[in-house]
Design a protein around this nucleic acid. Structure first.
Length: 492
RNA sequence: GCCCCCAUCGUCUAGCGGCCCAGGACGAAGCCCUCUCAAGGCUUAAACAGGGGUUCGAGUCCCCUUGGGGGCACCA
């Protein structure tokens, strides 16, 4: 493939949360730019004032930043092809619309939305495909100019060819040929003077010198329309790549609002913001959705820079992909284990803090290697390590009783463990394990039974990081104290 | 209804006419390791939607059927 530097763009509309599909489109753009030494642009498509959501643009920016998908030009950082918000580019669209009208490739249409709606309903009643009836198509330019000058409300429509076919080329799907009679004369500029997506996107992609366009398959049906527009201008076409959508885990249909809520209850989400809050790390998240639609033969675990090296638009797949949250868990856990200890500790800290625990860095650094391979998400650290930061633990009597033993026997073991450990000069892993194993030997019980009692006594839970390492971190004082308390609980 | 797209293990995918009795990953099952839970190692089960062509030869090319998805707005 070409190593020529590309100019690519992610162009979301600020109408909701940044989700998986958007993030993946952004990622592929970013990857291609990095791979070729090109530029990646963020452009905000905010021409629909009705659907505009306050804060959505910021969420997109924050989400991309968190994911590590950085852009070279964008609304918040500027760039040589700005502005990067479409509402700030009105004049540019006006100019281009005028040039198209002058060429006769577009024309003003004075039909009201109400009339069009009526026409549409009548067509549907007659079981016809709804379409614009084209009555303004043949208004003489002079008359149109007069009506515009008189202040009559109008839109600008593209004069689409009414016969023949249009063939457009998609990089992963090949040629797509459609009969031109299936197309309406699409609206380019709305009554409010703002461009529609169709128009604004084509104009901006040209103005910003975009070489490759990644977008969702929802644009595939209007693809020939866009190509016609670009050709009407006489512009060079970019390489088009239509990415498939994500299906819900069952593979039947898109994720619904309800299913998104259910996923959240299960600790998963299709929204970037949630994923962050849920304790997923960008490395894991990126790796996960990158591979839904990009086929890699082997060695699937990759960081962003490795992905950029290996990325190719020739290995993108056209078929829709069902979301698999189990795989997200896998990638997340894998990338957590790949993090250097100090870095992981740094990321874990806020989760302990949020739980109201007094975290000291020294302890945090010691326990990080102990809990690391047990984490699927960052907030799992609480389940495995919260007790390290607590003064006391509250084991239940039930948990303290080992399998096949009774309370008195278990208490005796706790007492004996106390004596053995107290006799040691310190409670380091090296010092504690050997005598304890010797004791297990002596009793004829299983390590599981004996260590189980001590684990519950010392950590307050049945599942914990390795016992001896844990005791070393907890410290001699507290370990002995907790052992004694456990014996008392059992003896009552 | 009309138009367009898609189709390999349960899921994500490799495969771009012979290298494939189809490879990897997640998940599942079993074994090993083991103080719990994990992590790790090994092993197993699991797929070319169906039918026609083209070709010496098809998962790979063409057509049809079926199934799935998307679109048919002064929304993106």
């Amino acid at each position: 493939m070409t190593a020529k530097p590309v100019r690519v763009r992610f162009a979301p509309s600020p109408t909701g949360h940044l989700h998986l599909g958007g993030a993946r489109t952004a990622l592929y753009n970013y990857l291609l730019a990095k791979k070729t030494g090109g530029k990646f642009i963020l452009r905000i498509e905010d021409t629909d004032q009705k659907r505009y959501v306050e804060g959505a643009e910021q969420e997109i920016i924050d989400g991309l930043r968190w994911l590590g998908i950085t852009y070279d030009e964008g609304p918040d950082i500027g760039g040589p092809f700005g502005p990067y918000r479409q509402t700030e580019r009105r004049e540019i669209y006006q100019t281009h619309a005028k040039s198209l009208v002058d060429k006769g490739a577009a024309y003003p249409c004075f039909c009201s939305a109400e009339r069009l709606e009526k026409v549409r309903q009548e067509q549907q009643k007659r079981k016809e495909t709804p379409h614009y009836d084209g009555i303004c198509r043949n208004i003489a330019p002079e008359e149109a100019a007069r009506r515009i000058a008189a202040g009559e409300k109008h839109v600008i429509r593209l004069r689409m060819p009414q016969e023949g076919t249009t063939t457009a080329h998609d990089h992963i799907r090949g040629d797509i040929t459609v009969d031109n009679k299936n197309f309406d004369d699409a609206i380019l500029v709305k009554t409010d003077g703002l461009p529609t997506y169709h128009f604004a996107a084509m104009v901006d992609d040209h103005e910003m010198q975009i070489t490759h366009v990644f977008r969702g398959v929802e644009w595939l049906s209007t693809f020939p329309l866009h190509v016609n527009m670009v050709r009407a201008f006489g512009w060079e076409e970019p390489v088009w790549i239509h990415l498939s959508i994500f299906l819900k885990p069952t593979g039947k249909g898109k994720m619904s609002k309800r299913e998104a809520t259910d996923a959240l209850k299960d600790g998963h989400s299709i929204f970037v913001k949630d994923l962050k809050d849920l304790g997923f790390i960008p490395e894991g998240v990126n790796n996960w959705y990158a591979l839904m639609g990009w086929g890699v033969a082997e060695d699937e675990v990759m960081a962003l820079d490795q992905m950029a090296q290996r990325f190719s638009i020739d290995h993108l797949t056209p078929s829709p992909a069902a979301i698999n949250f189990q795989k997200l868990d896998h990638f997340n856990g894998t990338h957590i284990r790949l993090l250097p200890t100090a870095e992981l500790a740094r990321r874990l800290k806020p989760y302990f803090r949020a739980d109201g625990l007094a975290v000291d860095d020294d302890t945090l650094l010691k326990i990080t290697p102990l809990i690391r391979e047990r984490l699927v998400t960052l907030d799992d650290c609480l389940a495995f390590g919260a007790f390290f930061f607590k003064e006391t633990v509250q084991p239940t009597r039930e948990d303290l009783i080992a399998k096949d033993l009774d309370a008195a026997q278990s208490a005796a073991i706790a007492r004996r463990a106390y004596q053995i450990l107290e006799a040691q000069p310190d409670i380091s892993h090296a010092r504690s394990e050997a005598p304890m194993r010797a004791y297990v030997e002596e009793t004829g019980l299983s390590p599981n039974q004996v260590f189980g009692i001590i684990r519950v006594a010392v950590t307050g839970q049945k599942v914990s990081p390795p016992l001896f390492e844990s005791m070393e971190v907890i410290g001699r004082e507290k370990v002995l104290e907790r052992l004694k308390k456990a014996a008392e609980i059992l003896e009552n």
